[in-house]
Computed example of a mutant assay.
Amino acid sequence: MPVTPDELCARLAASGIAFHRTDHPAVFTVAETAPHRDLMIGLQTKNLFLKDKKGRLFLVSARSDARIDLKRLHERIGASGRLSFGSAELLLEKLGVTPGSVTAFAVVNDRAGEVTMVLDAQLVTGEEVNFHPLVNTATLRVRRDDLLAFLRGTGHEPLIVDLPVPADGQSG
Rank of each mutant, 00 (worst) to 15 (best):
T98L: 10
L83Y: 06
R67E: 15
L48M: 13
M40D: 12
V108M: 06
V115R: 05
P2S: 08
L123F: 01
R72L: 07
Q44R: 11
V129T: 06
R82M: 07
F58W: 11
G78T: 08
N136E: 08
F58S: 12
A31T: 14
S87E: 06
H24S: 05
R152P: 03
V102P: 06
M117A: 12
F85L: 10
F28C: 09
P99N: 07
F28Q: 14
T125I: 11
D110W: 01
V97L: 01
T33Q: 05
T139V: 06
A14C: 13
R111G: 14
L83R: 04
S101Y: 01
G155K: 04
L57E: 12
A149L: 05
V115C: 09
P166W: 14
P99H: 03
V118N: 02
R143G: 11
D69W: 04
S15G: 13
L83N: 09
H24D: 02
G169L: 02
P25K: 06
T29Y: 10
T29F: 09
E89K: 08
P25N: 08
L123S: 01
G81N: 00
P133G: 12
V118E: 00
D162S: 11
L147A: 01
G126H: 03
A88R: 05
L50D: 13
A18C: 10
K54I: 08
A121C: 07
A88I: 13
L91S: 07
N109C: 02
D38V: 08
L119N: 06
L83W: 06
T45Q: 00
R63L: 13
L50K: 05
S80Y: 14
A10K: 13
C9G: 12
L83T: 06
P2A: 09
L147W: 00
A167Y: 10
P166G: 15
L59I: 06
L73S: 01
D146E: 05
T4F: 09
V135S: 13
E128Y: 10
G155D: 06
V161S: 00
A26K: 08
R111P: 14
A79Q: 02
S64P: 03
L148T: 00
E32Y: 14
S171A: 14
A13W: 06
G113Y: 00
L159D: 02
G113W: 00
G42I: 01
L92H: 15
R141W: 01
V97R: 03
R56A: 13
L50Y: 09
S64A: 15
D6F: 07
S171L: 12
S171C: 11
R21V: 15
S87C: 08
G55F: 03
F85N: 09
L70F: 10
T98S: 13
L73R: 02
M117C: 10
